[in-house]
Each structure stands twice: as C-alpha cells, then as structure tokens.
C-alpha cells in the first residue's frame, strides 16, 4: 500500500500487528506465568521451562500421530503428562538440591534443560517436523484485520486458562495456600500446609503451562528439540519485565513483548531481538523491580 505521508509509522498496519503481537504475546505470557509460578512457590528460577515444554510437545505429537488421538484428547493428556512431569522433577531432583546458594538450582535447571534437549533428540530425532494443526478453516476477518483460526484458538485458550487460574488462586483453599507459601513459608508450615506438596504442585502447574505454549506454537513454527529456545528466552524476559514475583506482571510482560516483537519484526526483522531486549533493559533501569513487581523486603 502506497502512502503519501513521509511518516513511516503511519504505514504500519497497526491493527494487524497488534492482533498478531497479542497472539504471540499470549504464548510468552503463558510460559512466563509458569516461570513466575514456579519461582513464587518454590523460590527456584527455572531455566528448564522451555525444554520441559518442548518435551511435552513431543509427547503431544506422539499422541496425535502414532496414536491418532483427537486434538482435544491429546491436549488434555499432554497437560496431565506435563503436570506429573513437573511434579516429578521437583520430587526427584529439586527437593534434594541444597538451596544454600542460589546457583545450585540454577545449574540444576540449566542441566535439566540440556538433558531434555539431548533426550528429545535421542527419542524423536533432530529433523524438523510439522505439528498437526489443531484447527483448520478460513481465518476470521474484522475489516482489514485477519485473525487466523489458530490465533483465535490461542486467545480462547489463554483467556480460559487465565480465568481458571485467577479463580483458583482467589477462591480455592489450595490456591490461597500457594499464595501463603509464596509470601511466608514458615508461617505457611505452621498452618499445616505441606511445603513439599506445594512445591510439587507449583512445578506441575508451571510445567503444564509451558506445555500449552509448546502445543500452540508448534503448529505456527515447527517441531524440533530447539523449538522453544527463542520463546523461552522471551518468556523469561517477560517474567523479569513483569517483576518476576507478579503473576499479572508475567502476563503484562508477555503481551508487551509479543507486541514489540510483532511490530519490530515487521519493520526491522533483523533487529527484532535487539529491540525487544533493549526495551527490557530500559524497563529494568527505570523500574528495577519490574513493571508490577514489588521490592523484595527481606523478612527476618
């Protein structure tokens, strides 16, 4: 489309970039939410979020192709798998790791991500595969804006999940107990809350959220062991921008990053990551605790 105005910004199809950005940002938000959830509940920053998601997506792929299950069934089973997988990681590995230095769990989760990367390659191979489309059909059109069926699905899934999680943390005793553990582990123990159980639950839920991202992004991109590398990095950045201790912050950070990614990717694809991370640096310089984070006050 030609334009007579010299202002390049006016040329941009803003509505479309916004819609695409929000869809991508929803996926960052889901993954970031998982990272923050695990951090808040267990005080461990996981660097394995992308790879547990990738591994779960391969499980979904196997269920869809080898077992020919319908997408909804494969989706549900994969969520279950990812939840148990996350809980298992907590039980078998992280619970035994000394947290006397913050570095121990970091190294362990980095190691875990490399193990999963190699493991997935060993089981499923390194070739790039196409992931079956969960939805097919013509895109929805709103004026000039096009919304693909897949992006519509991403919005629906994200909204539904966020609503469920909001209700869970607000109204269910287990959700309130998880918030209590995040705020004061000692006092939570004195309420009869089992920290071990909450840690496992946090890991399970966080890992399942990553799996949702994996299953929704694989149809857009491709499926191979390194599929989540870029997404996980962006999700991590989103979590930090949002404040790392704030679940709504993770969502805001994810959506923001998705929009920046979408606009920058259209205008200057080669600078996409540079622009996204420059923004992160700026946010953290201006607001060290992140957009919605709270300053950590050490309790004695």
């Amino acid at each position: 489309m030609l334009s007579v105005t010299p202002d390049v910004l006016i040329d941009l199809p803003w509505g479309q970039l916004l819609v695409n950005g929000l869809a991508l940002g929803s996926l960052y938000a889901l993954t970031a939410f998982g990272i923050v959830l695990i951090y808040k509940t267990t005080q461990v920053i996981t660097f394995a979020q992308g790879e547990t998601a990738m591994f779960s997506t391969f499980v979904a792929f196997t269920l869809l192709t080898a077992f020919q299950l319908p997408f909804a069934v494969a989706f549900a089973l994969t969520l279950l798998f990812a939840g148990l997988f996350g809980a298992l990681i907590e039980r078998v590995v992280l619970r035994r790791i000394s947290t006397t230095t913050v570095l121990n769990p970091v190294i362990v989760t980095v190691g875990l991500s490399l193990i999963l990367l190699g493991g997935a390659g060993w089981i499923w191979g390194y070739e790039i595969r196409t992931f079956p489309d969960p939805v097919v059909g013509p895109p929805f059109r709103f004026g000039t804006i096009v919304l693909s069926q897949l992006n519509a699905l991403i919005f629906v899934v994200t909204l539904v999940l966020m609503t469920i999680l909001f209700a869970f943390f607000r109204f269910s005793p287990t959700g309130i107990a998880m918030r209590a553990v995040a705020e004061n582990r000692m006092a939570a123990q004195l309420m009869g809350i089992s920290i071990g159980r909450m840690n496992a639950l946090g890991w399970g839920m966080g890992t399942a959220m990553g799996a949702v991202t994996g299953m929704l992004i694989a149809p857009i991109n491709y499926l191979d062991p390194s599929m989540m590398g870029d997404v996980a990095l962006k999700a991590f950045a989103a979590a930090v921008v949002g404040g790392l201790t704030s679940l709504p912050g993770a969502v805001v950070g994810g959506l923001l990053l998705g929009i920046v990614d979408s606009v920058a990717g259209f205008e200057a694809p080669e600078l996409r990551n540079s622009i996204a991370f420059a923004l992160i640096v700026i946010v953290l310089v201006v607001r060290p605790a992140g957009l919605l984070g709270r300053r950590e006050t050490k309790k004695v």
Binding site: P173, I176, A177, R179, A180, E183, M186, M191, G192
Partner: peptide
C-alpha cells in the same frame, strides 16, 4: 507472621487449612 498480602478472611481460612 500473618500473610500481609492476603485478606483477613483468607488468613483465617488458612488457619483451618489443616
């Protein structure tokens, strides 16, 4: 050691959690 971020109601609810 009350849960400052939670409401009074939620604090009481957690008291009965066990």
């Amino acid at each position: 050691q009350i849960f400052a971020e939670l409401t009074v109601r939620e604090n009481l609810l957690l008291g009965g959690y066990a």
